[in-house]
C-alpha cells in the first residue's frame, strides 16, 4: 500500500504537484490528466525516484526517502527505448537481477520463465535495438516483472503502440497479479480500473470510480476553448 501525505514537488520556481494526500489501496488504479499536469512526476514519487519537496510518501509503511522502495514498486517508463539498457534481450532482462544474489543460472531460469509465460521465448537472443516498438514495450515490462515487485507503475504504456500491440499489452496486464498503477490518456484502458485519479495542474481534480471520472474528464476537455 502506498500513502502520500501533503506531498508537494517544486522544481525551481515551478510548482509541479501541490499538497497531494492519498491512500492507494485498490488493485488497479488509473491516473489521467492533460499533458504537463504532473502525472509522470506523481508516478515517479511512488517508487522514490522523485523525492517530495515537502510531505512524505510511504510504501508499506516505510518512507521512500529513507527506505528504498525500488524493489517493491516496479516502474515501466513511457519510452521503452529509454528503459532498455543492454544490447541483447536476455542481458537486458537479467539487468535488474545482477546484484540480487542469485546465481547466473538462477537468473537465466527466472528470465526464461517470464519469457515463457508470455510466449516470448523467441525474442531471447535478439538485439534489443532490432525489436519492433511493440516488442520493446513488452521486453521493458518483462524486465520489470522478473524483479517480481508487488506493485507496478506504468507511465503511458500504450502511447507508442499500434492497435495490435496495444491489445497484446492490455491482455498481458490483465493477466498480472500485481497491484497496477497506470498513467494513461487511453480512456478505454482506464475504463475497467477500480479507481481513477484525475490530476490537473498539479492538483487532484477528481478521484473515484472509473465511470464518473472518465465522464467528468471528457466533459471538461470538451468544454475547454480550443
Amino acid at each position: 500500500m502506498i500513502r502520500l501525505d501533503g506531498v508537494t514537488v517544486r522544481k525551481g520556481d515551478t510548482l509541479i504537484l501541490d499538497s497531494v494526500s492519498l491512500e492507494l489501496t485498490e488493485r488497479r488504479i488509473g491516473i489521467i490528466g492533460p499533458n504537463g499536469s504532473g502525472k509522470s512526476t506523481f508516478a515517479r514519487l511512488l517508487n522514490g525516484l522523485e523525492k517530495p519537496t515537502t510531505g512524505t510518501v510511504h510504501v508499506d509503511g516505510a518512507p521512500t526517502d529513507r527506505v528504498s522502495a525500488l524493489g517493491k514498486v516496479g516502474f515501466v517508463f513511457q519510452n521503452p527505448d529509454n528503459q532498455i539498457v543492454m544490447p541483447l534481450v536476455d542481458e537486458d532482462l537479467a539487468f535488474g537481477l545482477r546484484k540480487s544474489g542469485l546465481s547466473k543460472s538462477e537468473i537465466g531460469e527466472r528470465v526464461q520463465r517470464h519469457l515463457e509465460r508470455f510466449d516470448l521465448t523467441h525474442l531471447n537472443e535478439r538485439r534489443t535495438h532490432e525489436l519492433s516498438g511493440g516488442e520493446k514495450q513488452l521486453i521493458a515490462l518483462i524486465g520489470v516483472l522478473v524483479m517480481e515487485p508487488a506493485i507496478i507503475v506504468l507511465d503511458e504504456p500504450t502511447t507508442l503502440l499500434d492497435l495490435r500491440n496495444r491489445r497484446i499489452l492490455v491482455s498481458l496486464l490483465d493477466r498480472l497479479d500485481q497491484t497496477l498503477i497506470v498513467v494513461s490518456h487511453d480512456l478505454e484502458l482506464m475504463a475497467p480500473m477500480d479507481r481513477l485519479i484525475w490530476i490537473d495542474e498539479g492538483r487532484i481534480r477528481g478521484d473515484g470510480n472509473a465511470g464518473d471520472i472518465v465522464r467528468g474528464y471528457r466533459e471538461a476537455t470538451a468544454a475547454e476553448p480550443c
Binding site: 515517479r44 525516484l49 516496479g74 529509454n82 528503459q83 546484484k99 544474489g101
Partner: peptide
C-alpha cells in the same frame, strides 16, 4: 531518462 531507468531497475 536512461539514467533514471537504471536506478529504477537496480533495487539491490
Amino acid at each position: 531518462e536512461i539514467a533514471r531507468a537504471i536506478v529504477a531497475r537496480s533495487p539491490d
